[in-house]
């Protein structure tokens, strides 16, 4: 049987992969996907905790509620984020983060 530690390790590794993608990739859409990976990694650990810490003999559904909300909010976020990317592309003709440096001080 897989232990809680196994799930947390896998979840943490997925998170690390997402983080690496965010830091290393230059395509803003890919960066966005990596963010989704990181969110999902968090979801995995939430569900794992929910399963491994039962309440009244049932999995802790509060954790799964949180996952449910995260997924919903992530969907909304993706919609808005992609709209922003589209608007950005219209304005700047690029989604390459190296060229999007107007915040430079």
């Amino acid at each position: 049987m897989a232990t809680l530690n196994d799930y947390l390790l896998v979840s943490g590794l997925l998170f690390a992969i997402g983080l690496a993608g965010v830091v290393l990739r230059r395509n803003i859409i890919v960066v966005f996907m990596c963010l989704e990976l990181m969110l999902s990694a968090a979801n995995l650990s939430l569900v794992a905790f929910s399963r491994f810490h039962p309440v009244n003999g049932l999995p802790d559904y509060n954790g799964q509620m949180l996952v449910f909300f995260v997924i919903t909010v992530a969907a909304a976020e993706v919609a808005v984020g992609l709209a922003i990317i589209v608007a950005l592309y219209r304005a700047r003709q690029t989604i390459h983060t190296d060229e999007l440096t107007s915040l430079q001080g």
Partner: peptide, 18 residues
């Protein structure tokens, strides 16, 4: 010095955050 930090690079910010 601090101006350098404001590189405008998304990855830079992400790295700092991480």
């Amino acid at each position: 010095l601090f101006r350098r930090v404001q590189s405008g690079s998304l990855q830079g910010y992400a790295f700092a955050f991480g």
